[in-house]
Amino acid sequence: MDKNFAARRRRDLIIAAVLAGLAALAPLFVKDVYVQNILILTLMYAALSQSWNILSGYCGQISLGHALYFGIGAYTTELLFTKFGVLPWFGMVGGGVIAALIAMGLGYPFFRLRGHYFVIATIVIAEIGLLLFQNWEWAGAAMGITIPIRGDSWLKFQFLRTKLPYFYFALALCCLAWFVTWWLEDSKWGFWWRAVKDNPEAAESLGVVVFNSKMGAAAVSAFLVAIGGAFYAQFLAYIDPESVMGFQFSLLMALPAVLGGIGTLWGPVLGAAILIPMTELTRSYIGGSGRGVDLIVYGALIVAISLALPRGLVSLFSRAKPKGATR
């Protein structure tokens, strides 16, 4: 088992490196801006879902309130940038740190809750955040913030003429989230999380500090999601509370991981790679009528996949991978 595990981890790393390399070459062939846009969103959702998966998949604490951290990342970056002229790079890291601190602060009371009570608490806290931002005049209230154009530069992380830098950043973020997950999977934390997920009482009795491991997962997860939020804000150059903190977003973050395979290393990437292009294509090809056909198709697919493959799409590959892969 140990040997298999090590071999599988090495293979995963190689596959990831090859995929990342191929992805990095993609812009050479894809010149169409619309397709580039889809690729960027796919990579971003893969990264977000991977981060969500750390807390909800590995550690088993289902959060449907991650939009809060996403929004905090976006708002920290943009408020610092527009009000104080702080470069987005600092805002990004600052937003991540604030999100992680909030996640830990919330963790104190939240992690006492179980099951539905926990899930509803996460939804509710994100909803409170949304309402507060909608009513916070200084932060633009419901109108949001339009990010001023200061010209193309990596320094200000703003590009008008080309989308490529965004693409590479999203790819890097996706790789980072994947690598962090990969690395944590084999660490003390990774084993603790899985133990906490399977049976918290038993884990506690074997000396796992359940509370601390939940806190760790929450902090890492929130930090990465907030960075994604900062990226999204720069990418769109416009944010408002509903579009970065809405409940819809929390679900969209969870969806790729759930469809791909919750609590697995490859699930979020696989889920995002299929789901996001599908969403965008249905939206632009059949959504134009404004009559909700895209919603019908999209919803039906979600129902179909969740019913047909409760373990997610990775279960299709499970023969190729030893069972440890899906744990």
């Binding site: 759930v258 909700g292 019908i296 919803g299 979600i302 179909a304």
Partner: peptide, 24 residues
């Protein structure tokens, strides 16, 4: 596996379909 998540997303998918149908 993941009975909770399957329930959440099956019914969530249903909700989206119903909203879409209502719009249609």
């Amino acid at each position: 596996a993941n009975a909770g998540m399957v329930q959440i997303f099956t019914t969530f998918g249903l909700a989206i379909v119903m909203r879409g149908l209502a719009q249609y």
